[in-house]
């Protein structure tokens, strides 16, 4: 399997506090990779290093190499806006703009100048909504406020918004943690569907979710990558005792 993201010896600091220690990992193309681990283990911090979202924190500093398609995203002169277009992100809490459903998705297409004309914009918005498994539920009310959608629909709208700018990688930070089981199932089905076109990295506290949707799972603890293996192996016969203790609930 070809590698989409290659991380070598990544250290990460919040001021003087080191949050990630010497992480190296190959994230394969068009697969789902799940990050699991206890709270504060660094999994979300690590996720955010993959599209330099941590740059928004003044005291944050990364050392090491993160290559996407062979290009080091921490190299001087990297176009961070282009990077974040290529590496989209979906957060724990859905965060639609206070606009219509259509405008939420159209926004990224417009500011990136991806559309040729009005009809093309309409087509791109509908495609993104369709790919996010939302179009059928909202096609008759595209001009209604996004706030009128349910929590699960809002989260899929955020996924549609991420898809609209044609990313290659999608980072998801606990995308279903605030959703009920039915909405969660829809998000999980969507993740499995989306991996046909995108490389996906998902942070989750829900180990059943990691086991259901991911091809590979990484277990983090205290800022260190403890184990990274195919999900089937991680949940049936992990290499590391710490992983076994964590996934069997004997962690302490």
């Amino acid at each position: 399997m070809q590698s989409k993201i290659s991380i070598s010896n990544l250290d990460f600091y919040y001021g003087k506090t080191q949050a990630l220690f010497d992480i190296s990992m190959e994230i394969p193309e068009r697969q789902v990779v799940a990050f699991i681990g206890p709270s504060g283990c660094g999994k979300s911090t690590f996720l955010r290093t993959l599209n330099r979202m941590n740059d928004t924190i003044p005291i944050a500093r990364a050392e090491g190499v993160v290559k996407i398609d062979g290009e080091n995203i921490y190299a001087p002169g990297t176009d961070v806006v282009a990077l974040r277009r290529k590496v989209g992100m979906v957060f724990q809490k859905s965060n639609p703009f206070p606009k219509s459903i259509f405008e939420n998705v159209a926004y990224g297409i417009r500011i990136n100048g991806l559309h040729k004309n009005k009809a093309d914009l309409q087509e791109r918005v509908e495609k993104a909504l369709r790919d996010a498994a939302l179009l059928n539920e909202v096609k008759d009310r595209l001009n209604s406020s996004a706030f009128g959608l349910s929590g699960g629909q809002q989260q899929r709208l955020c996924i549609a918004r991420a898809l609209a700018v044609q990313p290659e990688v999608i980072l998801m930070d606990e995308p279903a943690s605030a959703l009920d089981p039915i909405a969660t199932q829809k998000i999980e089905e969507l993740v499995v569907e989306l991996k046909k076109q995108y490389s996906i990295v998902i942070v989750t506290h829900n180990m059943q979710q990691a086991s259901r949707v991911s091809d590979k799972t990484a277990f983090f603890m205290l800022g260190k990558l403890i184990e990274f293996n195919p999900t089937q192996k991680m949940f049936t016969n992990p290499d590391e005792r710490l992983t076994e203790d964590y996934i069997t609930g004997r962690f302490g």
């Binding site: 180990m207 086991s211 949940f235 049936t236 016969n237 992990p238 992983t243 076994e244 996934i247 069997t248």
Partner: peptide, 9 residues
């Protein structure tokens, strides 16, 4: 209980 790893085996 959704056992995993050795417990599952």
């Amino acid at each position: 209980q959704k056992p995993a790893a050795h417990d599952l085996r």
